[in-house]
């Protein structure tokens, strides 16, 4: 789902960083915090207001893995596949999420609620296998817990 972009909000972000092209990355981070991805109209606005070539925006936006040009779900599920989590069954956890949500890794559900991704290490190996949903950390996840996690977030109010 493409987000409707409020250019006023983008302008505010630009203003808060003093419209300095050196702060392109934090500006993009602020925009992504708002929309969960980088909508093209917002990027075009950055290019215009900062007076930099569009290729510069494209280079930065595609270089960093944190930035997404595709719309992401409301809840971003990060399944840790670091060494400790891998040994404690992370691949199976990822499979469970894929099966339950009916999407591949890096896919987004049709209702726009969940995006599934795998990450290399969340640095919480004692809790392996770890799953992070937005800012919540779920430790010692098992396949039957996967369903509960999904249901808990799906039941949340907007």
């Amino acid at each position: 789902m493409q987000a409707k972009v409020n250019l006023k909000l983008v302008d505010e972000v630009i203003k808060s960083w003093g419209a300095d092209p050196a702060f392109l990355i934090p500006m993009m981070q602020d925009i992504q915090a708002q929309y969960n991805y980088l909508p093209r109209p917002a990027l075009n606005r950055l290019q215009e207001k900062l007076n930099i070539p569009l290729t510069r925006v494209s280079e930065v936006a595609t270089f960093y893995k944190t930035f997404s040009l595709k719309p992401k779900g409301k809840y971003i599920i990060q399944v840790c596949t670091g060494t400790a989590c891998h040994l404690r069954g992370a691949p199976r956890i990822a499979d469970s999420f894929m099966r339950e949500l009916g999407i591949e890794v890096n896919g987004t559900t049709k209702n726009g609620l969940f995006t599934l991704s795998t990450v290399n290490c969340l640095g919480a190996c004692a809790l392996a296998p770890v799953v992070k949903v937005n800012e919540d950390v779920h430790g010692q996840v098992s396949s039957d817990k996967v369903k509960k996690i999904i249901e808990a977030y799906a039941a949340r109010k907007k």
Partner: peptide, 22 residues
């Protein structure tokens, strides 16, 4: 400045911004 790089590592490519006609 119509051309630039996109992505990084093995996926790195050259071309106009966002691989669209500039």
């Amino acid at each position: 400045e119509a051309l630039g790089f996109r992505m990084r590592g093995v996926l790195k490519q050259v071309g106009p911004a966002f691989a669209e006609p500039s």
